[in-house]
C-alpha cells in the first residue's frame, strides 16, 4: 500500500479550531492512500456525512484502516483531493434558483483540469459521486466549452459519440443480443418479400 503525498495541506492555525485539524485517510480502488484535512472534506457532502457518521477520534484515524472509496481510482481521487484542499473553507454553492449560474473557471482549476478527456470524464463522475458541487460545476463547464465552434464530425471525435449509422447498428446488435430469434425472423421476412409475398403470415 503506497501513501500519496499529493494533497499538501496548508493549515491556517489561527482560522481553524483545534478540533478541526484532523486528517482522514482514504483509499482508492487501486489501493492508493490519501490524507485529507477535515476542512477539505467538507467540500464533499458525501464524505463529510460519512466521517461524521463514523465519529472517528484522532487515534481512530491513525489506528483504523483507511476509508475505502471503491468506485474511484487513485489518479482521479488525487485530483479530487487536490481540488478540495485548494478550495477548503469556501462556501458551497446552493442552487436555490436565485444564485446566478454563471461559472468562471479559476486558474487553479483550469490547470488541474488540463488533462486528457478520459480523466476529465472520470473527474466529473467522482465529483458527482462524492457530491462536490463546485467541482462538478467547473468540470462540466470545461466539457461544455469543448463543444464550442466544433462541427458535428469534430464533436463525435471529442465526445466519442457514434454516427447515426453506428448508433443504429449498435441498437440492432443490442436487440439481437436480447432476442436471437429476431434476426432470423427479419431474414425470413426479407426473403419472403423478395419472393413477392404480400403477407408475412
Amino acid at each position: 500500500m503506497s501513501v500519496e503525498n499529493a494533497p499538501v495541506v496548508d493549515v491556517d492555525e489561527a482560522a481553524i479550531p483545534v478540533e478541526k485539524k484532523m486528517y482522514y485517510r482514504f483509499e482508492s480502488n487501486d489501493k492508493k492512500e490519501f490524507r485529507v484535512s477535515e476542512l477539505a472534506i467538507q467540500q464533499s457532502e458525501t464524505l463529510n456525512r460519512l466521517v461524521e457518521a463514523m465519529g472517528y477520534t484522532s487515534e481512530d484515524v491513525e489506528n483504523k484502516p483507511a476509508i475505502a472509496i471503491e468506485n474511484i481510482d487513485g489518479k482521479t481521487l488525487k485530483l479530487v483531493f487536490q481540488w478540495c484542499e485548494h478550495h477548503k473553507g469556501e462556501a458551497i454553492p446552493v442552487d436555490d434558483g436565485s444564485v446566478p449560474k454563471i461559472v468562471e473557471i479559476p486558474e487553479f482549476d483550469a490547470k488541474l483540469m488540463d488533462i486528457d478527456n478520459g480523466l476529465l470524464f472520470k473527474l466529473i463522475w467522482a465529483a458527482d459521486y462524492l457530491n462536490i458541487v463546485q467541482l462538478l460545476n467547473v468540470s462540466c463547464k470545461k466539457v461544455a466549452n469543448m463543444a464550442q465552434g466544433k462541427t458535428p464530425a469534430q464533436l463525435r471525435r471529442v465526445y466519442l459519440l457514434p454516427s447515426d449509422e453506428e448508433d443504429e447498428a449498435a441498437k440492432r446488435a443490442a436487440q439481437e443480443a436480447q432476442d436471437p430469434r429476431a434476426r432470423e425472423v427479419e431474414e425470413e421476412f426479407e426473403e419472403r418479400k423478395r419472393q413477392g409475398g404480400n403477407s408475412f403470415f
Binding site: 463543444a147 464550442q148 466544433k150 447515426d164
Partner: peptide
C-alpha cells in the same frame, strides 16, 4: 445547461 445553442444544434446532428 452550459452548452450554447450552436453547440447543442451541432450535438443534435451527431447521432440518434
Amino acid at each position: 445547461d452550459y452548452c450554447d445553442f450552436p453547440a447543442i444544434l451541432n450535438l443534435l446532428k451527431t447521432c440518434h
